[in-house]
């Protein structure tokens, strides 16, 4: 019986605890995530069709998807999609937007400055910190080894 050591108990608990339905979760994540990317691609194609540059089109894709995400979050629908799709709605930029918007709504009761303003980045803050810091390091390394060898393109 697993009462003796903490490690044995942990192993026993792992065996006892039901696992997440990983195949179902992966399937849902796949098609929802894929679908969000397809919607992005359609917006991108439309922007190109209207004669925008590629960079501008990319920005417009981000803005549109973030808007859709904000809209669904404000209607209290995004968490249901997230519960169903898991990483499928988390990994696309919609999930990033949702992680900024949801604490903003949550902490509204603490006021607009110290609540909404401060808590907005409780979940997404690390993403910006690590993303931007990594990009600075990438830039500095690129500056030092400014050769085609490091940049394969």
């Amino acid at each position: 019986m697993p009462i003796n050591s903490n490690k044995e108990y942990q192993n026993y608990v792992d065996k006892k605890s039901p696992n997440s339905p990983i195949f179902k979760n992966c399937f849902n994540a796949f098609w929802v995530g894929g679908l969000i990317c397809v919607i992005g691609q359609l917006i991108f194609d439309y922007c190109i069709y209207r004669g925008f540059s590629k960079d501008l089109a990319s920005s417009l894709v981000s803005i549109s998807l973030i808007f859709i995400s904000a809209f669904l979050t404000a209607l209290n629908l995004f968490n249901r999609i997230g519960k169903f799709a898991g990483a499928g709605s988390l990994i696309p930029i919609t999930g990033f937007a949702n992680s900024i918007i949801s604490p903003a709504m949550e902490y509204k009761s603490e006021g607009y400055v110290m609540g909404v303003g401060t808590k907005m980045f409780t979940v997404a803050g690390p993403v910006l910190v690590y993303g931007i810091s990594t990009s600075v390091i990438v830039g500095i390394i690129y500056l030092i080894f400014n050769t085609q060898a490091i940049l394969l393109v």
């Binding site: 979050t73 898991g86 999930g95 949801s102 604490p103 709504m105 979940v123």
Partner: peptide, 17 residues
Amino acid sequence: EKQFRFPLELGNQRPPT
């Protein structure tokens, strides 16, 4: 949830435990 876990509107999944 607000104090211990995540904002209510965050689209995350709860594990079965």
